[in-house]
Measured scan of single mutants.
Amino acid sequence: MVIEDPKTNKLIEVEKLPDGTYKVTIYDKKTGEKKTITMSKKDLEKLLKAL
């Protein structure tokens, strides 16, 4: 799943891993910076609600 946040000009890509956690990659379209973090479903839901 890919989500675009027009306010921050970032793309957020979410991928479910076999162990039940989620790999979240955040791309900054302005700088080209890429950050990848792994989080639980509960933390991911908090992140998505904040957008």
Rank of each mutant, 00 (worst) to 15 (best):
M39C: 06
D43R: 11
D28P: 00
K30T: 13
V14F: 07
L11R: 12
L44K: 01
L11P: 01
D19L: 12
K7R: 06
T36M: 10
K29M: 14
V24N: 00
E15T: 13
L17Q: 09
I26N: 03
Y27S: 05
T25W: 11
N9H: 07
Y22R: 01
V24P: 00
K49F: 14
P18S: 10
I12W: 13
V24R: 00
P6A: 07
E13N: 06
I26V: 13
I3W: 01
K29E: 03
L51P: 03
T25P: 00
P6W: 03
G20S: 11
E45N: 08
K41N: 12
K7G: 11
V2D: 10
T36P: 06
E33D: 08
V24M: 05
I37E: 06
L47E: 02
I12D: 01
E33G: 10
K29W: 04
T36A: 11
E4P: 01
V24F: 01
V2K: 00
V24D: 00
L17A: 10
L51Y: 02
K41P: 04
T38K: 06
L47A: 03
G20V: 02
D28I: 02
I3L: 02
K46S: 12
E15L: 14
K34N: 05
G32P: 05
T36D: 05
Y27D: 03
V2M: 01
K23L: 03
P6E: 10
L51D: 04
I26C: 11
E45P: 00
E15Q: 07
V2H: 02
I12Y: 15
K7N: 08
L51N: 03
L47F: 10
K34D: 08
K42T: 09
S40N: 05
L48C: 05
E15M: 14
P6N: 07
G32D: 04
K34H: 09
K23D: 02
D5L: 06
K23P: 00
E45A: 11
S40E: 05
E13T: 14
L44H: 01
A50Q: 04
E33P: 03
D43N: 08
E15N: 12
M39F: 06
T8V: 04
D28H: 03
K35I: 13
I12M: 03
K35L: 10
T21H: 07
M39H: 01
D19A: 12
E45Y: 14
D43V: 09
T8F: 04
P6F: 08
I26G: 02
T25F: 14
T36N: 06
Y22V: 02
D43H: 09
I12L: 06
A50N: 06
D19Y: 08
D19V: 09
P6H: 08
T36I: 14
K29P: 02
P18K: 07
E4S: 03
I37A: 13
A50W: 12
I12G: 02
K30I: 07
T31H: 09
T38S: 10
L47P: 00
K23F: 07
Y22P: 00
T8K: 02
P6S: 07
M1V: 15
T8E: 10
M39T: 02
T8A: 05
K29A: 07
L17K: 05
T31F: 08
D19H: 08
L47C: 03
I37R: 10
E13R: 11
K46F: 14
E13G: 06
P6M: 12
G32L: 09
K41F: 12
T38Y: 15
L11I: 10
T25E: 02
A50P: 04
E4T: 03
T36W: 12
I12N: 01
K35E: 12
T36G: 08
E33T: 10
L44D: 00
D28G: 03
V14E: 00
N9F: 06
L47I: 09
E4K: 01
E15G: 07
I12C: 01
K34A: 10
K7Q: 12
L51S: 03
E15Y: 15
K46G: 12
L11D: 02
E4F: 09
K42S: 12
D5M: 06
Y27I: 04
K7E: 12
D19Q: 11
N9T: 03
D19E: 11
K10M: 15
K29N: 06
L51Q: 03
K41C: 14
V14P: 00
K42V: 12
T25N: 04
V2G: 07
L48E: 02
E33K: 05
E13K: 09
K23N: 03
M39Y: 04
K41M: 14
N9Y: 05
K49W: 15
D28M: 02
E4M: 03
T8P: 01
S40T: 13
G32R: 03
P6T: 09
K30H: 09
K29Y: 07
T25L: 11
K7D: 14
V24Q: 00
S40Y: 14
K10S: 13
K41S: 15
K10W: 13
T38V: 08
K41Q: 10
K23R: 15
K16L: 10
L44M: 05
G20F: 09
L48W: 04
Y22D: 00
E13P: 00
S40A: 06
I3D: 15
V24G: 02
P6C: 12
M1S: 11
E4Y: 12
N9E: 05
E45T: 07
L17H: 07
E33R: 06
M1I: 08
N9W: 07
I26S: 10
Y27W: 13
E4G: 01
K29F: 07
E4N: 03
P18T: 13
K34I: 09
I3N: 06
K46C: 14
T8D: 08
T38C: 06
K41I: 14
L17N: 10
I3K: 01
I12Q: 01
L11Y: 07
M39W: 02
M39D: 00
L47S: 00
V2Q: 07
K41V: 10
E33A: 08
K34V: 14
K42P: 12
K30W: 10
T31Y: 06
Y22F: 10
K23T: 04
L44A: 09
K35Y: 15
M1F: 02
K29V: 04
I26L: 05
K41Y: 12
S40W: 12
K10L: 14
I3R: 00
K35S: 11
L51M: 08
K41A: 15
L11F: 04
T38A: 05
K35W: 15
D5V: 06
E4C: 08
S40M: 05
K10R: 14
E45W: 14
A50S: 06
Y22C: 02
T25R: 14
T38Q: 06
A50R: 10
G20Y: 07
E15I: 13
P6R: 01
K41E: 09
V24C: 03
K49T: 13
D43K: 11
E45R: 08
T25V: 07
N9G: 10
I37F: 15
L51W: 01
L47Y: 08
K42M: 12
V2W: 00
N9L: 08
K16C: 14
L11E: 02
G32F: 13
T25I: 04
M1C: 15
E33V: 07
Y22M: 03
V14M: 12
M39N: 01
T38H: 06
I26Y: 04
K30P: 09
K34Y: 13
I26T: 09
A50K: 06
L51C: 04
I37T: 14
K46Y: 15
Y22H: 02
